[in-house]
């Protein structure tokens, strides 16, 4: 693996994280926000696997195990999030997060 270092993967994870963060901050569509969260979780997973790959023998698979847990939680989060989005859509006929303010009094 000549030439490839840990920093390559960390910077790639950083870029994906920032794009996901921008997506979460700027979107008004609730599904768009969920897509941004998926990007953020993928960025975190890249870091986990990269650290585990470059971390030596002691913790060789721990990072991958954590990444699997993250993927599992991402699946649960996506299912619940999309169910909530569909419930909001059934009630309000919109998924614009700035229009769903019936709790704000």
């Amino acid at each position: 693996m000549a030439g490839l270092t840990l920093n390559h993967f960390l910077v790639l994870g950083l870029i994906l994280f920032l794009l996901g963060g921008y997506c979460v901050l700027a979107r008004r569509n609730a599904i768009g926000i969920l897509l941004g969260i998926e990007l953020i979780l993928n960025a975190a997973n890249i870091n986990y696997v990269a650290f585990s790959f470059y971390g030596g023998q002691a913790a060789k698979y721990d990072g991958q195990v954590f990444a699997i847990f993250v993927i599992m939680l991402a699946a649960a989060e996506a299912v619940i999030g999309l169910a909530i989005v569909l419930a909001i859509y059934q009630n309000l006929r919109t998924i614009d997060v700035s229009a769903t303010e019936s709790l704000s009094g």
């Binding site: 890249i46 696997v49 585990s52 790959f53 991958q64 990444a67 699997i68």
Partner: peptide
């Protein structure tokens, strides 16, 4: 990227 990092199962 996972393949590049040797994580075939992931």
């Amino acid at each position: 990227i996972y393949v590049l990092l040797g994580a075939d199962f992931l």
